[in-house]
Design a protein around this nucleic acid. Sequence first.
DNA 1: AAGTGGTCTAGACCACTTT
DNA 2: AAGTGGTCTAGACCACTTC
Lengths: 258, 258
Amino acid sequence: MNPVTPNQTTSDALGAAGAPSPTFSPLYQQIKGLITQSLQSGEWKPGEMIPSEVELANRFKVSQGTVRKAIDELAAENLVMRRQGKGTFVSTHHEARAHFRFLRLVPDEGVPHYPESRFIEVKRLRAPAEVARLLDLKSGDAVVYIKRVQSFDNVPTIVEELWLPGVIFKGLTAERLNEYKGPMYGLFESEFGTRMIRAQEKIRAVCAEEGDAALLKVAAGMPLLCAERVSFTYGDKPVELRRGLYLTERHHYQNDLS
Amino acid sequence: MNPVTPNQTTSDALGAAGAPSPTFSPLYQQIKGLITQSLQSGEWKPGEMIPSEVELANRFKVSQGTVRKAIDELAAENLVMRRQGKGTFVSTHHEARAHFRFLRLVPDEGVPHYPESRFIEVKRLRAPAEVARLLDLKSGDAVVYIKRVQSFDNVPTIVEELWLPGVIFKGLTAERLNEYKGPMYGLFESEFGTRMIRAQEKIRAVCAEEGDAALLKVAAGMPLLCAERVSFTYGDKPVELRRGLYLTERHHYQNDLS
DNA sequence: AAGTGGTCTAGACCACTTT
DNA sequence: AAGTGGTCTAGACCACTTC
């Protein structure tokens, strides 16, 4: 495939000729970009092994050290996983390891585990203005709306609403959601070719309204943690809006500041 | 100073002779440990420049690349900051950049800024069992207790309680806190030689009790975000317990999942 | 034995900052 | 011009996994 200009001075494999302010970037960043493209295009699928460092170095006509630095950054961003002696693998949501990267609600006592889902509602609708804005859609574009309750040990703890771009998640139905075990991100990745790689959350404390209180089997007015999440796939493209209400009587939201 | 065994095979500069299961670690990890010791001991103080990579390579009798990899990790952990052309500097809390690493509450609209503090109470007391456990002290050990209110644009928004090990924060008084402008972590770093480098938070939604509601000028029962934080300094030693109540009417707790 | 990622070295040169 | 961190190379060898 495209070899990359093997020097770091002023050339740039990605720079378009005649661009007004060409972006100069080090060689390993360009390699990183090329590898990311292959990940995005599905040349190497989640869970699969990518070519070895030596092979990539040959392909791109750079040294192994340069490929190595590119992959180091991709590993730091959780796009790939390195395993000594085996190879480098495309990250996937079909792993216990990945599950708790996005589910931060853990029990006060005992070991974290994944909750059971019960779907309340799955339908297609026109994106309200606010949803459209956050998902980078036009107001009125088709979106898939999902509402569910999640329970730990049969104790309902999370009420969650999701809005997904209709174009991407065309065939998403309640049946397919019910059939599927595990985090929805696994389903999104396998069935819709859309892998979430990053998210931003805004967290507030709110009072439970009647309907949500009933779903959680608590009194209206109970304080709940409200997490509004926008998730992004490759190219910082937003592909999910999620609003979760967490009952934090026996669970808490865990966060490491570092 | 101590040169490090210049090969990576089975020797280990830190391994004690005769240890039952000696820990083998790569050379750059050992270098990282030695640099961390110098940071911890105050050989290089917050804000100061540490010796250049070449100088450290000479000191430790290793290649520059090995020192580089050690510093790369320290930079990733925010213990030092690299500045091209200038040098590598010990991180400090006396920077806008560091402030929002630990203060995650930001306004819904407008640019984040730092709140004003009003101290309600500062006293010494005997650590309750729970506090002692989290700070790795003995129950009944001396701790400094602080309670304050923080306001954004004269709107009280945060009620915060702190517990600090009495041995470390001996001369901490209300006066010194009032004199000091900016985040307390800056004061802790400069006046008490204790630098926070990492923290764990557990977040819940709670109802405001009478006293806290009065301080925040809201009705009792108002939902508040409760963040319990344990902060650590070098060697994963806990040196602060903090319990914050956040009013999230016009602010939210921001978190990036990546 | 062969293939993978992980460590270490030595040297060259680039980009940025200060003198 | 000199010093700093940043990039890139080529080669050696180590540790781990699989055949």
